[in-house]
Amino acid sequence: MSASTNEIRVGMKVEVDKEPYTIINNEFVKPGKGQAFNRIKMKNMINGRMVERTYKSGEKLDLADVEEMQMRFLYKDADSATFMDDKTFDQVTISKDLIGPIEHWLMEEILYAVILYKGQPIEVAPPTFLEMTITETSPGVRGDTSGRVLKAATTETGAKIQIPIFIDEGEKVKVDTRTGEYVSRVNE
């Protein structure tokens, strides 16, 4: 599968020098009487590096064999985490190297987006919002319910976050996994 430079859109996944890239920008450049080019900015999906490549307009780029699957987190051990496809019950074990940045967002029974390149996982993304229990924090202070005064807390997944001072240990909160910010208290 390939696509011409004039079909390359933001977000498409291409393969360059045997590595997968996400398209960030595609600019058409042409002198009035000269060769037309496409200056394409892309991000390496494995190491995150940004690169810029220029192609003659009309050249073709290979599309990367990339797919995203929703998989349920089962368990983790010392150096990996295991997920399962709900439909096929297939399990995949992903090394800590890839899980590293999101390890503190791993919760059992939750669905994660696993990005596969040629069938191999290259990235795991948590849902934007997660609900989790506070396991460690200083005692709640009544009175201030503005939510503007914050204190440190640790959640059941081991994430270190800032929460309003009126929340106690054992309470459930909603957290934004992109920023690690507290969103709201969850009443059950």
Binding site: K30, Q35, E52, Y55, K56
Partner: peptide
Amino acid sequence: QLQPDPAWSRSTLQHFLLTH
């Protein structure tokens, strides 16, 4: 710091340097 294609002709490289 640009990545031209080794297969390009001299005239393409000329336009590449001009535009980039």
